[in-house]
Design a protein around this nucleic acid. Structure first.
Lengths: 127, 127
DNA sequence: GTAAACTTTGACACTGATGTCAATGTCAAG
DNA sequence: CTTGACATTGACATCAGTGTCAAAGTTTAC
């Protein structure tokens, strides 16, 4: 599939897909004519990258994370102490983010319930 | 307390505290000399604002959220259908963020465990 | 074969969040 | 009174993420 279709299926603009590739977050094969070509696996990858970026992680950290996931898939991942420390620090930040967002989510939910708009909740969940 | 102390206690730069105020996310009393003065309650407020912003929410949405919390504290919160719909939409986005971050968190945790750096986990949690 | 739709790269621009600096004012300590 | 730490506002700079446009090549549909 080419970039347009990938964009359609992920909801991520072609412009951004190219940008993420440029940042090293994505790879793409090239057709003989130079067009980028993608497989099914890229759909998830793009979705994930976009999700992390939207969640506020800098692209650089996203790269580290995803590289790590790839490395984790292989056995015997290697990880020098220093990198591990950085990751641990990031972990703290991410957990703080989760806590903050969870609280916001609960606030919105409760608010919608109290204002008689609870129907929107299931509607939203349906998506 | 003045801005410097507030910054120290929250870990948020004075520059940003002023910025958040300018964006309507914060309020501050003024001393006769023009200095901003804050109370204990501002410590939590600033922490919360900074947390949400770091989590990737635009300041504008943060404002809506916090205003909502304030309104929810009062009884009989009012909420026109249109606003409720926007909030429901935001809720979906926030939940996606939480899911994405949760997955990242698990990835890092698992990775640290597998690379014999599990000690860093409790260390991080301690903070 | 021609037009319409899509792709490529690259440049420019804009926005939001922050850093930094400058000029000035205030306050506490010596 | 002077010095140093901290405040004020406002301007300017930076960076990441995106939008948009241009010029050119490719593919698809008629």
């Amino acid at each position: 599939m080419r970039i347009g279709e990938l964009a359609g299926r992920t909801g991520v603009a072609p412009r951004l897909i190219r940008y993420y590739e440029q940042q090293g977050l994505l790879t793409a094969d090239r057709a003989p004519n130079g067009y980028r070509t993608y497989g099914e696996e890229h759909v998830e990858r793009v979705t994930r990258v976009a999700g992390l970026v939207r969640a506020g992680l800098p692209t650089k950290l996203v790269k580290v994370l995803l590289d790590m996931e790839d490395a984790a898939a292989a056995r015997e991942p290697t990880c020098p102490r220093l990198v591990a420390e950085q990751l641990a620090a990031e972990l703290v930040g991410i957990e703080a983010n989760i806590a903050c967002l969870t609280r916001s989510r609960d606030t919105i939910r409760e608010f919608l319930t109290r204002t008689e708009h609870a129907a929107l909740l299931s509607e939203a969940a349906a998506r």
